[in-house]
Design a binder for these strands. Sequence first.
DNA 1: GTCTATAACCTGATAGAC
DNA 2: GTCTATCAGGTTATAGAC
Lengths: 210, 210
Amino acid sequence: MKTKPEIEINASTEDKIKEAARRVFTRKGYAATRTRDIAEESGFNLALINYYFRSKEKLFDIIMLEHLQLFLHSVMGIVNDHGTTLQEKIELLISHYIDMLVKNPDIPLFVLNEINADPEKLIKKVGVRAMEHKDLAIARQWKELAATKKISSINPIHFLMNTVSLTIFPFVGSPIIRHKTGLSMEQFNALMEERKKLIPLWIKAMIETK
Amino acid sequence: MKTKPEIEINASTEDKIKEAARRVFTRKGYAATRTRDIAEESGFNLALINYYFRSKEKLFDIIMLEHLQLFLHSVMGIVNDHGTTLQEKIELLISHYIDMLVKNPDIPLFVLNEINADPEKLIKKVGVRAMEHKDLAIARQWKELAATKKISSINPIHFLMNTVSLTIFPFVGSPIIRHKTGLSMEQFNALMEERKKLIPLWIKAMIETK
DNA sequence: GTCTATAACCTGATAGAC
DNA sequence: GTCTATCAGGTTATAGAC
């Protein structure tokens, strides 16, 4: 069976440039990367970037779009699955994101940055036809849970923020965390692996608090 | 009583430029801000920036250092206070940071970014004579709590990450959160105010879980 | 101290040879 | 398709008048 390798060795020049751009943009952000950096990283000449992508900005938009799709895509399948419980959905989402973040730890800071730089642009470009939240399976299930009155009565937005915070923030703060704790990348990733089980437990405990 | 105003109206030219630089750098990051932006924001001419600060980078370093000190400074007093309980320390820290972040919501992303851009540089510049953790009052108190065996046995780093994540991440993700939820800045800040009380409760619940 | 003008450099983009 | 050479425009930094 032929699986897609992380770095396509026989990729086209266009794809090689795109991958180089992805690495550099993700690491340094739009403003700090020079087209020369991308050329060097790709092993090709500066002129080829314009030959294939017309401009730095167009190339960047492609990378950003792919990142956002990676972030949003598989998620819809999870949150709108009528065959899983709410607890299972939370576990699947967290596990899915941690897997992705271990592989691509620079993405969150990159995305947060560029959204901050120009919120309107990003929102338009992704075509955030923000799914009607209330129609999703996960929303219905939350409502049912809330109706049982067994859970905290505080604004549900808090729990959404908490889930996202606990899952993503450690990756954003990874450089400081690793420096302050002296953890290696492997040890850090092992902690993240632990969190796949822990975060759902914590969320549950928070929801039942008070 | 004369309190220090947010924007010093009779500040020196040097301070006015520095404040302008702080606003622009914090909002746009180092690479994306031009010295012209700072000049314009300050109301003075571009040449004065070099007259007072010699270079863009030197000015930036000053701003960054002040931000990091703002972040770290008052904290040491809290974590090393032998007169407060562990629970009180957690409450004070969270409350302190949320107050600061409501006033300066752009700082976390800014700091995280620049640390990510060059971890070594920042770590050296702040002179992170990282206080010997184990000597701090808060560390001793945590150890005492752990000795009672009444708490979870998992790696304490998780709880440190959780506290920081729950406190800071909402501010980093504020643009997306506000867009997706339709909250105004005032409503968002009201939620953050709620979290001063909630996060300590949640942390407690997490620590006692399992 | 503050300004205008300009130097010196860098960056994105393109022309044109191969 | 890919490269070298170069242009056009923007950016930091400085010189010099006031």
